[in-house]
Nucleic acid binder design. Structure first.
Lengths: 207, 207
DNA sequence: TGCGTTGTCTTGACAGTGTAAAACGAATGT
DNA sequence: ACATTCGTTTTACACTGTCAAGACAACGCA
């Protein structure tokens, strides 16, 4: 048999194959992309048989769902990091936006899984919660500029939609390499342009 | 060339299998989605053997590439239709933006193929040309507002990036059903909100 | 007309995939 | 010590994309 026996020593695999699979899946996703992602590939990376994952994840989509949930948590952290590097409501919003874009560029496949794949199951409570938490952060950032709860008014919701859209659009288009002049900018200069674009969402309505 | 009649009972199965396959592929894409798209499924829809497509498209990705190119042409038409329903540079831009979003909502799988799949080959001349044409239209719309060629300055390019980003972000997020309050609006009211958001890209700099 | 060539399609095969069922062995409880 | 349970492997099946051989229609040219 060509396939060498997975595991060196005694006992069950790691004791925790589930997290080992998640780790393997993150690698698989990062270098094969969403469309090249393979459950069997994950199993190989974790050095277990191709059917081993079944015990921990109902099917391939369930593994991707768990991965997407992890992704949203990292995504939220990236936005928070971007925000905390700034001071003042407006600067904080653009900081969070930069975090958003940086995350997308750093983990393109994960970002694609989270935002433009139909494979993750958004009815899954964990994923739903993780995605909502990220959204909450965005709403809170907008609320800090508006000085109210954006949910309370159509104008508030419109602000949220505008801010989210522009940042998401930037991220998606940068990922698709379809804005050459932006993709080719040196990172720091690029960030300046991005910040300028993001800032536009709130045309000097108030300080 | 001899068989131009639609249904030659005898002879080759189709007079023009290539276009029949493209048509089949459009259906396959629309109801299976990018991630469920299958070359064999297309062949079945066209009622030919599973290997027949190989003569007309190098592989599955080549078929998707041709489909994406068709998509970009329809996409451009949708933007132009949206623009021509309006008068004045600003209204035209938001009209085109509405066309952009409407296209995405009308053909979600195609839109996903065009903007967030790695399967189409953007080095293909036809696809490249079709995608560029759509981009040109956008630049022209922005140029009409600015009264210059946006390519000539960083400010112009930034305007283009901002306009494109916000509209693309809106489309992508609406597709992902992740802005419930927008998704649940009645279409006409939704369009008003979208127009308001799109209009923000150009904060009252000039009429 | 006949014949060779080309182009179109079918058949069959292969490796790879996801997933279900069954077999097997380690870990655990009593 | 034994039975049970749980984690994993093995086996199997239907499906995919693609390749290699054919069968056969259409065309060019005698």
């Amino acid at each position: 048999m060509a396939t060498q026996h997975p595991h060196p020593r005694t006992g069950y695999h790691h004791g925790d194959l589930r997290t080992a699979l998640l780790k393997a899946a993150r690698l698989e996703l990062a270098d094969k992309g969403v469309e090249g992602f393979t459950l069997r590939g994950c199993a190989r990376r974790a050095m277990v048989s191709h059917a081993a994952p079944a015990h921990h994840f109902r099917d391939a989509d369930a593994l991707l769902t768990a991965l997407a949930a992890e992704g949203f948590r990292a995504f939220l952290a990236a936005m928070q990091a971007g925000r905390q590097a700034q001071a003042g409501a407006r600067a904080e919003l653009t900081g969070a936006g930069l975090g958003y874009v940086r995350f997308a560029l750093a983990e393109p496949a994960l970002f694609q899984l989270m935002f433009s794949s139909s494979r993750p199951d958004f009815d899954d409570p964990d994923l739903r919660q993780a995605a909502s938490a990220a959204f909450e952060d965005l709403v809170a950032n907008v609320g800090r500029i508006r000085g109210d709860n954006p949910r309370a008014s159509t104008a508030g919701l419109t602000d949220v939609a505008a801010a989210w859209s522009i940042v998401h659009g930037l991220a998606a288009l940068l990922l698709g390499q379809r804005m050459a002049f932006l993709n080719n900018l040196p990172p720091d200069e690029r960030d300046d342009v991005l910040a300028a674009i993001i800032a536009r969402t709130f045309p000097l309505r108030e300080g």
